[in-house]
Design a protein around this nucleic acid. Sequence first.
DNA 1: GCATATAATTATACAATGTGTAAAAAAATT
DNA 2: AATTTTTTTACACATTGTATAATTATATGC
Lengths: 216, 216
Amino acid sequence: MEIDSISGEGRMERKKRELRQKIINVAMKLFEQQGFSNTTMEQIAEEADVARKTLYNYFPVKEAIANEYVRGISTQMAEEALAKLQKLPDTRSRLLKALNNAYGWVELNPELTGIVLAYRFKTSYYSYDKNQDSKNEFQERGTYRIIAEIIRQGQQSGEIRSDVHFKWLVRYVDLLRGTIVWEWLQDTSSFELREEISRMVDIVLDGIRSDDKRSK
Amino acid sequence: MEIDSISGEGRMERKKRELRQKIINVAMKLFEQQGFSNTTMEQIAEEADVARKTLYNYFPVKEAIANEYVRGISTQMAEEALAKLQKLPDTRSRLLKALNNAYGWVELNPELTGIVLAYRFKTSYYSYDKNQDSKNEFQERGTYRIIAEIIRQGQQSGEIRSDVHFKWLVRYVDLLRGTIVWEWLQDTSSFELREEISRMVDIVLDGIRSDDKRSK
DNA sequence: GCATATAATTATACAATGTGTAAAAAAATT
DNA sequence: AATTTTTTTACACATTGTATAATTATATGC
């Protein structure tokens, strides 16, 4: 079955990948033109020239299309960012840099960000329906990947405590980041995004206890 | 309009409240008998003897019914718990006690817990559709209310840092708690719920930095 | 009490979602 | 070239959620 696993990929696999990409492109074009909620799966199928059912074979819900598109961008940005992060001196600066990095895009694409954030929470929280994504969603991609790398590095260097599995630490940071971004999207004038993120990083690093009450 | 705002409430308001409750009761009964996803809004409307549209006037989606039911229980438990918490000596013990408190119920009702958790994230994260709940959802009810009380108290006593708005602190704790519970629901054998919660409380209180690297 | 305004419920219709089934088409395997 | 496997498709279906306008129930002013 998996003959051309590395070199080529077989006509079938290639066609599937191409169609998948075509769907994403078509859908994103429609979303841009008419807005996300005004675009139906029917339209997307029509425009991509496949049966509606086929579209559903590729993406079980509309949000999944947007998600995959954003994930692509995010993964790409992550790779570029990772290299630069090595030069920074400590975990705090790396975290701040990494988290702040993505906001330019977020600010330009608030609606899409909202949709994708919502979808990710939904699938990661509501996977009584187990599609293959649900578990991998929070896996090592995009911002999650960067955070994971930073935490891992922090644990190796002894900067971050090692008595908690890094999986949890990463999840926490990613989740809190998501919450802040979302809150900000709701009302962009209510607070300064970067400021709040910075405060969050402080909390995660140092905890919420008053300094003067700290043991030692 | 609001004549009987305190004593009675007017026939109309009373009837609405009664019908609302009836719907919840009927729905919960059906959920128990046939499972959540096997129960349709049609059935619920039928059984409650109202038009489907009326049902939708009360609850825009099925999950909202389960949510309101759980919120009732949760609010009730919260009130009982709050009194006892005062006796505990510090924030850590109060947080642990409060968070651990609800798990008996969670363990007995994993499916419902999952549905409600998912719904809350969805509505709090995906409120491009603004129903009245979306903003109040995370307001002072249930576990959220307890956490808020504990944090508030901690800030007053100087135990918790006051340079961050308590709204965020509460949200963080509540969110992290939700995540852990969810993860645990996915595979109840993968870790000890109370242990992980305890670790999370430690992190929130003291941060993720290694003790030996801590300033001061 | 009666008339009138207000609000809730209803029947009806509709667009859209998401799924199941079985047949057709395409690709891979022998 | 014949086969097996996979994918796409057409079709049908139950369900969701919303919009509209008619009907009914409740509240309010007289």
